[in-house]
Design a protein around this nucleic acid. Structure first.
Lengths: 203, 203, 203, 203
DNA sequence: AATGAATGAGCCTTCATTCAT
DNA sequence: AATGAATGAAGGCTCATTCAT
């Protein structure tokens, strides 16, 4: 008897397997067979559900990004004050769910692939824009618009930089250290900007 | 036309071709034939001089990193004061010679490959250590050791982050903006630390 | 036409094709494509089922040797007296099934390859040991142990020698002549040893 | 200043190198570069002197066979009586100069190649005929013509068989044992035939 | 729903061979 | 006399993809 409603289960299993495989291998240079075996199915079935390897990989990347976005959404929902919202965004980037060796490695592998694949580039761009928007939005309530933009860019760069630097480390990722680094930048910069604003206002 | 002593010329041409090919393609997934054709030779000759594809790619990465290191060496040689030396390190990272789309893309592609290739990981690690050493050295003359380490990490992360973020941009890389961002972090942080030191000393 | 359960059929077809190709070519220097074409499949399929060329060739050699061993087993089963058993072993070596130009040529080609491949050497050694064991066993019932060993070695050498000598002959192999040669050695030697034994016993 | 008279030296060095390389490798599947390196020259020079790989290999084989023939010639020259001449032929086949692992391995490799190369087959045939002629000639003075032919074939088969069987042994070749085996055949057979002849004559 | 069977296309690599010096 | 430079041709192997069951 044919099993019904297998599709969503298989798709999910294949996406997870793809992320695992790519993460473990450190590159998208994994074969469909490897991914399928991890998911406990045949390579033919992976094609059946995803059409082509690229489609599966795109789905995998979309999955990573949407999980990140979802977590960010939740965290922002619980934060009220702008400063808290900034911390929320930062902490989600390094949360236990995302800042794991396999995810980091997969993220980097997909990132590079985006250089070639417009579809993947688009996915990343959407995510980047949302991150930027979240940051700028909160920052504008604390500093001048121009400074807000600059700071958002700096924070995003630091996050990406910390990711990529962790990708090559053999030790377990240090989420606390990463968060501290970004938070320190934020604190210092905010203190500085606030002081300057006060000083300017005095004139 | 002389036919002897071609080896260094061919090696160099092939390394350049490899960087170009990888940079343009956005991944190390280029064929030896493509690289060889770019260098104007046969694929067999590339193997003759480099043994295997991996060896050629490693040489290409080593080339990129050693150029970077060399430029940094020169720049540091001309800078005396610690603050100037920091600026030198930063500006070299985004100099016209290095911060070009093809080099950025190639750098990222090699970076990812380092996740798989221990040899490449070693190359990157050597470079990273040298960069870190340069930064920490200069920073220690300006701030406390612990702060110096933290700031070096932050700067390195920002640099790598700015690289990776530029890799996906279709517009020409904005070296000035990148430098400004890192310099701003540096200025702000140094001002803050200096002020705190003065305040502490007062006690 | 059924499409399932093709594996054993394909494996067998590929092994046969390999033996044919090697035999016809007179060396293991045949391409996978040639073998595959003979079997009516693609080279990729040959790799799919055998992994690598070496594995296919080993399987082919194992096939030849196991057929020989199987025939010997049957022949020995039907022979009771020691002298008959010796004739059985000899005649199997030159039976119509084994002593054909293609098999002879393939056998020789594999034999040489065994100089390089430990796996093939092992296969041959197993077969040689079994042949020797069969011969010695029967001979010990007819002559002294030391003589039995010597005669076994001589017979084995003659068989191998007749094989190799036939490999280069363009005429169809002369099985009867080969058998007659070995049998003559056997008869003469047995007569001689028997006579000597009788003579010794008289003392 | 160009060296004069290098040609014979180089040719000889290359032939020796080829035999060594083939013998060590256990197959003619050695590259021209390997052979040339052994001879201390460039691959290009090997081509210069021999034209093609096949030509060099043929020369190497011819060298092995002619050394054998030469040794046999000398040994026969010193032996007068037919029985001694037979022993001479046998002992030369297993002389220290010829019955060495490398030579045995090379001989076998060339032997197989002769299955493919008519030129090599011709070389072997010439040698085989000469060996046969020597054996038959001496044997005819001891036994009937038909028996002489048969015995010559048996002896040749045993010699070849002992060669090929030694090719796969990892222990140093046992020349004495090999000689003893063939001599024993000879003695036994001669005794037998002589006795029969005497018996027949009596009638 | 799922898979074994099968292949075309492509890549890395090796190597004999040629040529200019 | 000798070699470095260079390549065309070919082979082993992998893999995404398709198809019939």
């Amino acid at each position: 008897m044919p099993k019904l409603g297998m599709e969503p289960l298989r798709r999910r299993a294949l996406i997870d397997a793809a992320i695992d495989a790519v993460g473990e291998h450190g590159s998208i240079d994994v074969t469909m067979s490897q991914i399928a075996r991890r998911a406990g199915v045949s390579a033919a079935l992976a094609h059946h559900y995803f059409g082509a390897k690229d489609d599966l990989l795109q789905s995998a990347m979309r999955h990573i990004l949407s999980e990140l976005a979802e977590d960010a959404g939740k965290a922002l929902h619980e934060a009220d004050a702008p400063r808290q919202r900034l911390s929320a965004v930062i902490s989600v980037s390094f949360s236990q769910a995302q800042f794991r060796p396999q995810i980091i490695a997969a993220w980097l592998a997909f990132y590079v692939e985006a250089q070639r694949s417009p579809a993947m580039r688009r996915l990343l761009r959407v995510y980047a824009r949302r991150l930027n928007s979240n940051l700028v939005h909160a920052l504008r309530q604390l500093v001048e618009p121009a400074t807000a933009s600059q700071m958002a860019e700096a924070i995003a760069a630091m996050i990406d930089g910390l990711y990529i630097r962790h990708a090559l480390k053999e030790v377990p990722p240090d989420a606390q250290g990463a968060i501290a680094l970004v938070e320190d930048y934020l604190d210092t910069k905010l203190a500085h900007e606030t002081a300057r604003a006060r000083y300017s206002a005095r004139d």
